[in-house]
Design a protein around this nucleic acid. Structure first.
Lengths: 220, 220, 220, 220
DNA sequence: GATGAATGAGATTTCATTCAT
DNA sequence: AATGAATGAAATCTCATTCAT
């Protein structure tokens, strides 16, 4: 059973190529991507067979390999939109700075970020699940994601945090810890859904408590 | 590729049986457990073959199946010590209450818990990684772990938190949120190791910041 | 070693589905069926391996499992034509009554039936052998075959025997005994071939004696 | 999966040796024989594992191989009593003629034989089932059984039939046909039990009809 | 581009048998 | 004699991938 990382497919390369490749994708290939997303997130990459994907997509098995040379490349293609939307800077490096906003206080900063990211998790839950599954066992993959990460959202968030620190509106800890606690606390929402797949977790309540907790924990 | 949960193996049953079954395990079987632990955490359950395990353990392939009827049962056997040590109450229900301690203040409570749990994560990193990998795609498994969880550490921690609340030493939020933020914040350590597998993360510094953050975030 | 009946494969379902499924079968799959027929009857189901079948059929081992999800399903597919031809009524319920003929006397009845069935045994010897091997140890299978049986040939034969009884041309015993003795006596031919695999047993002589014996034994 | 006949074990040799070998058999070995009889007849030789036998017998797996060098030899040992009791002449060649009786008429002959053999089938059902299973796919085995057969019961029965023919009390057909029809008709009882494993078939009724049918069919 | 039959390498598992105790 | 852990060969089955149509 080929591990994703046994394949020499490199996400960074694939991702960069994909962003430029505007080849129109056929409806069947779109169905394959959709099926891959569903199945990889439901069962995990290794427990999804090409046949499963073809069946769910309503195409022939061979069709899966027409555009995606690998099961691995298919997975990368499935994740590409996530990365692009998660890290706008990754998609377009020039916009990075424009997006950075100056926040009046810690509360408004956290409210904005938390609400945005929790919604993001809700929207992209399946993609994130696949990504987490890959991060666990695929070091190289983790490094690549971190590279992309570092280029974008972190830069943005880092800038905002630094700004708040300059104005003494947030604790004076190393950036990595502050951002780390934020990410972790926000990411808790993902874990909650994983552990309670059936119950709908009320988003607003989650936002409220998360903001309250972070605000107290990070106030100067 | 058989998913762990396609097998009808039930962790709760297996775990309960394992706790009572004190059959002396042979050295070879111990080597198999060790090999399973290493490989499952290095490569993931699905990317570890029986042949890999046998080879790493230095035994014949058939030997793996002599005591563990499945790859899945082997994995459960690998996880059993984790569960037993993580949740002492699960192993011995009677001690539960005795273990509960009254903490003088929030700081001492958090210091105790955080130090203990971060060390626990450090010690049991590989087992936890396997468990996380299972939780992602195996609902039934998640339910069972939650059942075991609920019986023990939560009960303990819940009691301590309630006590602190009664004495107005901690915020007056629902228990689930307080415990949730604690678990999440502590668990961040695990994520850090996953994302930085090479760099040694200084434990004491991690404890300090985690306690500081939680103390501020959870103070009344 | 998986017994045929440990598999949940159900012949009745399989058979019914097979009759309707007119998917054109590929030449390779036909070769696999042929190889299965030969080998199962030569060596028995349990002593025929997938590798044996693939080799005899001249295909890759995986090809065997492309159309037949099991060794068991392959065996059922091998037997399906036998059942269909043996019990025409099973294949087409409407013809049942049309096939029933009124026989002028016991002799002509027995001559027709015996000649027909002995030739049938001769033609379908290998399939019958496989079927007998299954009947020995597979209760469920036996029940299903009886169900199919009951719907067809028995009904036909029963009708003819009843008719002969009404005209006092055959003994007045319970139908089950009369049909039982006929089946048994005819089936003796199968046993003879099993026990004398080398010597050609002259069919006409066999027919003659069988008819003579049955005629005397069943005359009123 | 080793076929019985792939093993070089030869039943004739084994059987002859077994008859002379009066080594006292230990209780555990007796349990193994009993377990083998049960399991081989329930599931078939190939679907019974050594572990199954050991478990049913309540002994260790290795114990099975202490007295019986093979699974095949165990099966032969299981069948030996059947052969010995079925064919007294095989056990003691000298008694053969003494056992032969002169029957006053066809009816008494058939009544004696049929009742005796049906009871024999009833008593030795499991052993016969194993033997039939072997006969289907094991030519050499069939030949050996026929050799033993030929030496005994056939000789006896043949003598009686010849005697009846000399006195014109039975049809003047070749011996092989007469004996064949008798064997077949009697053997029908075995088939009935196979096909109706649950319902008790009344033995006396079976004897009556069998005798009536054979008497008519074989009268001169 | 799409199909789907075919492939063959490899994964999981079973099991008769051996052997040190 | 009995045990039962260990073996390794072989069996069943899966699946990513290819290729002729």
């Amino acid at each position: 059973m080929a591990t994703a990382n046994e394949e020499s497919t490199n996400f960074l390369e694939f991702y960069t190529a994909a962003l430029q490749d505007n080849t129109t994708i056929t409806p069947k290939q779109r169905q394959i991507l959709a099926a891959g997303l569903e199945l990889f997130s439901e069962r995990g990459f290794d427990n999804t067979s090409s046949a499963d994907i073809a069946e769910r997509a309503g195409v022939a098995e061979g069709t899966v390999y027409k555009r995606f040379k690998n099961k691995t490349e298919l997975m990368l293609a499935v994740l590409t939109p996530l990365i692009s939307s998660a890290f706008p800077a990754a998609a377009n490096e020039f916009e990075t700075k424009t997006l950075t906003v100056t926040y009046p206080d810690l509360h408004s900063f956290l409210t904005t970020i938390v609400a945005n990211r929790l919604k993001f998790i809700q929207t992209n839950f399946r993609e994130i699940k696949i990504l987490v599954g890959q991060l666990l066992y695929n070091r190289e993959f983790g490094d690549q994601i971190k590279t992309i990460f570092a280029k974008s959202i972190n830069t943005e968030t880092n800038a905002a945090v630094k700004d708040l620190q300059a104005r003494h509106l947030i604790v004076d800890w190393p950036l990595s810890y502050i951002v780390g606690f934020m990410v972790t606390t926000v990411f808790a929402y993902f874990s909650k859904i994983i552990l309670n797949p059936d119950s709908e977790i009320p988003l607003q309540k989650e936002i409220d408590y998360t903001v309250k907790f972070l605000e107290k924990g990070l106030q100067p």
